[in-house]
């Protein structure tokens, strides 16, 4: 493993970002407010209607997608804006930096998704999960896939001029296959399908995570280095 990247160093990069986040609260506060605002808008829009299974599964992932888009570019953009990219270059291998950032985005997205799902369950009464195993696995695999793809795209857009607007534009086509399959799988969880029947979907999600992570690892050098 140390050949690919250094685990201790990657962990320290994660810890650095985490401490920096605690001190500046740049992403966290904005993210929490983003989730709350989006859910509030949805509640107003839905009013007293009961959304169908398809719609409520879709909306959940729309909220997750856009929250991710508002918070996950931060790790790379902040290094670029502060001019600390070179500093990181001088103290760690590119792959170590990538995995440190990936870990940070993973944890951030997990926390955010737990928050979103809990709020969603409380606020949307028609969102009743029948197969918890499918649902939890979907959230887990969806989160890691989403973090992997959004981390490498974040590294790309950090080098561009129009960082914020470009992020969802570049991410959406990459994330679309994942979004399609997690929405389908969430629907299965709401319909109460047996987990054995959802295995194919999970395999696709795992494959997606593995492919994106592997290609990010291979190409990160070209992105990271000027």
């Amino acid at each position: 493993m140390n050949k690919i990247f250094n685990i201790n160093s990657a962990l320290t990069i994660f810890i650095k970002d985490f401490r920096s986040e605690l001190r500046t609260r740049y992403a966290l506060n904005a993210l929490i407010m983003f989730v709350i605002t989006t859910l509030a808008i949805i509640l107003f829009a839905v009013a007293n209607e009961t959304p169908s299974i398809e719609i409520s599964a879709g909306i959940l992932w729309i909220v997750i997608f856009f929250s991710a888009m508002s918070g996950m570019a931060r790790t790379f953009v902040s290094e670029e804006e502060r001019g600390t990219v070179m500093t990181l270059h001088l103290i760690a291998k590119p792959s170590t930096v990538f995995f440190g950032k990936l870990l940070f985005n993973l944890i951030l997205l997990f926390l955010m998704n737990i928050f979103t799902v809990v709020l969603y369950l409380i606020l949307i009464p028609s969102f009743i999960i029948k197969s918890y195993d499918i649902f939890l696995l979907t959230i887990f695999l969806g989160t890691i896939g989403l973090s992997a793809a959004s981390t490498i795209i974040a590294a790309i857009i950090a080098k561009s001029n129009t960082k914020g607007t470009l992020y969802p534009v570049l991410s959406f086509p990459i994330l679309l296959p994942l979004l399609m399959i997690v929405i389908k799988s969430t629907k299965s969880a709401l319909e109460g399908i047996e987990i054995a029947k959802a295995m194919g979907d999970f395999q696709v999600m795992i494959a997606y995570f593995v492919v994106i992570t592997a290609v990010s690892y291979l190409l990160f050098d070209y992105v990271w280095k000027d």
């Binding site: 795209i153 790309i156 080098k159 561009s160 086509p173 990459i174 679309l176 399959i181 696709v204 492919v211």
Partner: peptide, 23 residues
């Protein structure tokens, strides 16, 4: 950067082949 992006995009396209028939 655009080369890297098109490689990543190119690799996600085959996923549709597996996913779309499931949906």
């Amino acid at each position: 950067l655009s080369a890297v992006y098109s490689i990543i995009a190119g690799l996600t396209v085959p996923f549709f082949i597996f996913i779309i028939p499931r949906i």
